[in-house]
């Protein structure tokens, strides 16, 4: 089967796109989460919270552009179908992303009296972005149909994704801050972890009940044997994160990275569960990646470029994280 580019290229691009989405969710997840935590943080901590994500948020969002770009160029028919069906939540997300993105700059540069307003815009934009992404995930799982039940499910996934991003944001702050801000982040992380896990449980129970195809896929042998470890591993990770959080903040920051890494692991497991449930469909139950793919000769050109450039991107992104390693103290525009 791998002799035929019309077979393996769509798989390669689905994998590349999936990877971009996963990286996006983890990376922008933490900076959106920091924004969601704004109103429960003390105003004097806001600058330090921004400083912990300031050098990274722009590159984090670029993974979304890459993911949507890959959907656009590799599966153009699916791009049109999915985004037209999600037209309103997409618009809400885009406007929310615009508002929170500019708030980074305006809160620091506008007149001092406007700063609390831009902080509120930053919070609202971050929260709306997370909620609309979660809502879109819910509608996607439900096959992009709009009914009372699917909208209700979408609201559940919206809350779950927002809680998950909050978890990522709080665990990021545990790594990047200290003192009182770090102590508060530990408490937020525990609350967010509980909500996230409840949300994941609800989604895991409801999804096979609404989709016959997913039910068959999950509860038939041998698939069941491959899939059942996923929720078990997620539970183990969540327990590890819970236990480590109980001992945070640690005086010498021992294991401060574990909650973040564990949360990223939970997201990764959930992502693989979803991806496996839908493969080979890109528009649920309607369009497969093979039917939606662009011409092989154009995909090859992109794939070669991606294979050369993505490792370079990862390398200089790692360099940037190394430059800004350690605790975020203050943020200077100089």
């Amino acid at each position: 089967m791998f002799d035929d580019p019309a077979v393996w290229l769509p798989v390669a691009f689905a994998a590349l796109m999936g990877l971009s989405i996963l990286i996006y969710v983890i990376l922008d997840g933490y900076d959106l989460g920091v924004g969601i935590l704004f109103p429960v943080a003390r105003p004097e901590d806001h600058d330090r919270m921004i400083a912990s994500i300031g050098p990274f948020w722009d590159a984090n969002e670029t993974w979304l552009v890459l993911a949507v770009g890959l959907l656009l160029v590799a599966f153009p028919v699916a791009h049109g179908a999915i985004l037209s069906a999600l037209y309103l939540p997409v618009t809400v997300m885009l406007i929310a992303l615009i508002m929170r993105g500019v708030a980074f700059e305006f809160r620091a540069k506008a007149e001092a009296g406007w700063k609390p307003t831009w902080d509120r815009v930053f919070f609202a934009g971050s929260l709306l972005t997370a909620l609309s992404q979660g809502y879109m995930l819910g509608l996607y799982v439900m096959g992009l149909d709009r009914s009372l039940a699917t909208v209700g499910f979408g609201l559940v996934t919206a809350v779950c994704v927002a809680a998950g991003y909050t978890l990522m944001g709080a665990t990021w702050l545990i790594i990047k801050t200290d003192g009182d801000l770090q102590r508060r982040a530990v408490r937020r992380a525990r609350a967010a972890l509980v909500v996230t896990m409840i949300g994941f449980a609800v989604i895991s129970v409801v999804t096979p009940l609404v989709s016959v195809r997913i039910f068959d896929r999950w509860f038939s042998l041998p698939e069941f044997l491959f899939l059942s470890p996923l929720p078990l591993m997620a539970l183990v990770l969540a327990s590890v994160v819970w236990v480590v959080l109980a001992n945070q903040p640690h005086a010498r920051d021992r294991f401060a990275w574990v909650p973040f890494a564990g949360s990223a692991g939970i997201f990764t497991l959930a992502f693989f569960g979803l991806a496996y449930s839908f493969y080979p469909f890109i528009v649920p139950d309607r369009l497969t990646i093979y039917a939606a793919a662009s011409a092989p000769e154009s995909l090859i050109i992109i794939l070669v470029g991606a294979l050369v450039v993505v490792p370079v991107i990862v390398a200089y992104s790692a360099f940037s994280y190394w430059v800004f390693r350690g605790k975020a103290t203050d943020l200077r525009y100089d």
Binding site: P55, T62, Y316, F324, R332
Partner: peptide
């Protein structure tokens, strides 16, 4: 498709990552 993909791959990440260093890495 390939033209847009190359814009994202070769330009967007480069400017986004090094913008962070340019704005906040002076010291």
């Amino acid at each position: 498709g390939p033209l847009l993909a190359y814009e994202v791959l070769t330009a967007f990440f480069l400017e986004a990552v090094f913008l962070g260093i340019m704005l906040f890495g002076f010291r």
